[in-house]
Design a protein around this nucleic acid. Structure first.
Length: 574
RNA sequence: GCGCCCUUAGCUCAGUUGGAUAGAGCAUCGGUUUUCUAAACCGAGGGUCGUAGGUUCGAAUCCUUCAGGGCGCGCCA
């Protein structure tokens, strides 16, 4: 239930019914009618722009029209005790005690399902997909948490969600990775010096993997790289995926499917995808020009298969084959996405890091081509996480091996704070992640603030010896809310809308912002009791007003659900 | 040269898709604890919403111009 949508419908219906008496010739713009919360200082529950909007297209003075609508509302709908016109012609509406009670009781009944918008679509979210050449770094954490919470949101609204990880376990980088492990093994076993170059992975974790592989293959001499390659690839990959999975688990993230690029190639899915695209002439043989702005001497203008992604909004067509005729990374990814399309998801979402911005158009184009525009891939790019340490920017580079890994972070900061912090920002903007500040376990951290509000509520429940399931009888004859309770209730009414927007626009950051605001209102109310006995909730071990208890329970329901979507824990005591 | 993202208070950011006097946190200054948890609360100051135009009753929000910052621009993955 969304109170705003409910009244949009009621008011719109009322206007349609009374079109004649309102002198409205034109009802074209009815979809633009919104009901929302007015600015706090007006002290109303709802506001509506119907008069403004319809006045405009029917050339009627909006205030005049709003007055007529107001009379209608008061006469026909029994839900409001007061309706006023304000500003350029807004209708401000105040609900009666009866309708407030009705709405409160609905939420108390819905409990943790309050705010759920019943939809039933089939989503696939691909996220993290960090290269299996080493552990996750801090940047991956952001995409990981973003994808996970997005999945939680969509699931909460009744959708089916498959969380997927694409393992890039094919191609040169894996060979280089295996080579690095090989050289580290030689270093450990035969004391040969590990000399790094830009193709190799120098990180310490390579030694750990090397040690494990030595342990598992006591009879293996590791004399010849080519001979050991198959074994090294297989076992190194296994170990690095274990590292990644363990990091993910510590962050509270679990994927449903791990999809291997090697499997994809071996099952000839790439060939199938390309054949399918050939049928429509989306893939043809041709030549590509060298990229502009760079004079690349190594550019070889030779005939090869090319995907005409410009037909689907890309800036340039893309090569499917390398010089040696093998598939490009992109070609493999096209094969992978054909598989996703064939699995009949209604919506595909890819969560990518900022370094993949240039990639989104071509893969989106590929999905459009593969599905004949039936499936839309939505690529969400998470901007950089900029690390600061000792006041200086901290560079991350997997190759250099001096990156801050997810592990480093998790060793110092708890998962709750990491999750909340990574989400407390839109995915479109960079995050300044001050490592030192996080290490301080600073009290500025908003996650504590929300958790603390919940802990306080739990403390009230303990004192009253009840829980959030307590039955409450609200009597409209004596029903009255004080200023603080009204503010909180209005904020509670917003929750379904927040969930709706966060979920439909893929903007999970709206959840932590909302929870913070709700917590602020609660803390503020709580503290009133310090100054003035009148505002204390409890007297002699009993709740003073049932209304108060209802409001407190509503707050606890929403905070609990919200933090549950974020995957952040809520202690009863702090 | 091209593409994507960003530009709102001293700093870090929200801003319900075009609405009312643009909001939080941090920082600064000043207050609040015989308590249902002070990890909290209250108050004050702080703004040309990057620039210049356009669209209309109405723009931080939509369109265009320009400037600044970030990421990317393989036939690497």
């Amino acid at each position: 239930m969304n109170i705003f949508e409910e009244y949009i419908k009621k008011i719109t219906d009322l206007i349609i019914k009374n079109q004649k008496s309102l002198n409205l010739d034109n009802l074209n713009d009815l979809k633009g009618i919104v009901v929302e919360n007015p600015p706090v200082e007006f002290n109303f529950d709802l506001s509506c722009n119907a008069g403004l909007l319809l006045g405009k297209i029917n050339r009627i003075n909006p205030i005049e029209l709003s007055n007529k609508i107001r009379d209608l509302i008061l006469k026909e709908l029994k839900d409001f005790e007061k309706v006023e016109i304000a500003g350029p012609g807004f209708l401000n509406l105040k609900l009666t005690s009866e309708s407030l009670i009705l709405n409160i009781n609905k939420i108390l009944k819905d409990k943790e399902y309050f705010g759920k918008k019943a939809t039933n679509n089939n989503y696939n979210i691909e996220f993290v997909s960090a290269n299996p050449t080493g552990p996750m770094h801090v940047g991956h954490c952001r995409g990981a948490i973003y994808g996970d919470v997005l999945a939680n949101l969509l699931k909460f609204n009744g959708n089916k969600v498959t969380k997927e990880y694409y393992i890039n376990d094919y191609g040169n980088q894996i060979k280089n990775f295996a080579k690095s492990v090989f050289l580290r093994i030689r270093e450990i076993k035969y004391n040969e010096k590990f000399i790094s170059n830009e193709d190799l992975y120098p990180g310490e974790y390579i030694k750990d993997i090397g040690k494990k592989i030595i342990e598992l293959n006591k009879n293996e001499k590791f004399d010849d790289f080519d001979q050991s390659l198959t074994l090294l690839k297989k076992q190194s990959l296994k170990h690095s995926m274990e590292l990644i999975k363990s990091d993910l688990k510590k962050l509270g993230i679990e994927h449903d499917i791990f999809f291997s690029e090697t499997d994809l190639v071996e099952k000839k899915l790439v060939d199938k995808a390309i054949n399918q695209l050939k049928k429509n002439n989306y893939v043809q043989e041709g030549f590509l020009e060298a990229p502009k702005g760079e004079s690349d001497k190594t550019w070889k203008k030779t005939k090869r298969l090319i995907f005409k992604s410009t037909l689907f909004g890309d800036d340039t067509d893309r090569a499917m084959q390398k010089n040696d005729g093998t598939w490009t990374y992109f070609a493999n990814d096209v094969g992978y996405h054909m598989d996703k399309v064939n699995r009949k998801y209604k919506y595909l979402i890819n969560v990518l890091g900022a370094d993949h911005t240039g990639y989104t158009k071509r893969i989106t184009a590929a999905v459009s081509a593969l599905s004949e525009n039936k499936v839309k891939l939505n690529c969400k790019v998470c901007q950089l996480v900029k690390l600061y340490k000792n006041g200086k920017p901290f560079k991350m580079s997997k190759r250099a091996g001096d990156f801050i890994s997810a592990q480093d972070l998790l060793n110092e900061v708890n998962k709750d704070s990491i999750r909340f912090m990574m989400l407390n920002r839109s995915n479109d903007v960079e995050i300044d992640f001050d490592f030192d500040k996080v290490l301080e376990k600073s009290k500025d951290n908003p996650v504590f603030y929300v958790q603390y509000a919940f802990a306080r509520i739990s403390s009230i429940f303990r004192t009253l010896k009840i829980d959030a399931n307590e039955k409450i009888n609200l009597d409209s004859n004596e029903f009255s809310l004080n200023e603080n309770e009204t503010k909180i209730l209005r904020k509670i009414f917003e929750w379904p809308k927040i969930v709706e927007t966060a979920s439909s626009k893929y903007e999970p950051h709206k959840i932590p912002f909302y929870l913070y605001e709700l917590a602020t209102l609660f803390h503020s109310y709580w503290s009133k009791g310090n100054k003035n006995e009148r505002f204390k909730f409890i007297d002699d071990g009993k709740i003073k007003k049932n209304e108060t208890l209802a409001i407190i329970i509503l707050v606890s329901i929403v905070i609990k659900r919200g933090m549950n979507i974020l995957g952040v824990s809520l202690p009863d005591k702090m």
